[in-house]
Write a protein that binds this DNA or RNA. Structure first.
Lengths: 128, 128
DNA sequence: ACTTGACTTAGAGCGCGCTCGAAGTTCTAA
DNA sequence: TTAGAACTTCGAGCGCGCTCTAAGTCAAGT
């Protein structure tokens, strides 16, 4: 009964560290992982999609507290689907706002770069 | 000689707290600010643009360490223009990468939301 | 003159998300 | 069989970017 993916290999596949995988389990983002007879963790291939989804939520700035709430809802089965959807919709709006802000700020930074290029040209023309 | 903007008003204008303004000055993001005869800080209207630019850099994820480097270059005058431009260009690339990642992740989250909607419809149809 | 509140400095403390260390057990390869 | 790497738990520690506290000074209103 010692099948499944050892933590090292699972870490490699998810891009998370073994430390982080244990931490995520500890704080309830991952359900308790099955063990080999030795006590070592054995991940299932099916755990991959969930960890990848968690990683997307983090990468888009969702706080760990909210991810914990989402994971808790998920453990409570299908009747939490609407609440999970609403949570994701709120996050979707946050991301869209963040994207809009980034684009505005990027435009301003791009202008600044152009301003520097202009200055460099005029400095070079009469300064050197 | 006590003209200029008191810290409270300047904080309100920039959206930073007075604490953060003092902190930024302490770590060299802001040049030492002029003082009234009382010792109280007096900001100049011209400081606003710089603080706003700093705020854009932070909002787009530039680490404070890099902002410190940028501020130090700026203090060294026009001959640092090319290096400042290169620093901003590198940051520009970082933002563009981040935007691309966010968009990919947002799309995946949007799909997940749609998946939930589909599930809710089919659950509702035969479950209720 | 006195109160109230904004300011000053220096340094401590905090919330976040990991990340690491210690001490002990188990697996793997020679 | 034995060395060394990988695993376990538990709790401490860290880097970041602020944020706050304490103790004191200064300014404005009554």
């Amino acid at each position: 009964m010692d099948t499944g993916i050892p933590i090292r290999a699972f870490a490699a596949r998810t891009g998370l560290s073994a430390h982080t995988l244990r931490y995520y389990e500890r704080i309830g983002l991952l359900d308790p992982v099955g063990r080999a007879s030795s006590g070592h963790r054995r991940y299932l291939a099916g755990d991959l999609a969930w960890v990848e989804f968690l990683t997307r939520l983090r990468a888009t700035g969702m706080p760990v507290r909210v991810m914990q709430r989402f994971a808790a809802l998920r453990r409570h089965g299908d009747r939490t689907l609407p609440e999970r959807r609403e949570l994701l919709e709120a996050h979707q709006r946050d991301i869209e706002q963040h994207l809009a802000d980034l684009q505005v700020n990027l435009a301003a930074i791009t202008e600044k770069i152009q301003h520097y290029r202009d200055l460099e040209v005029s400095n070079g023309q009469h300064g050197e």
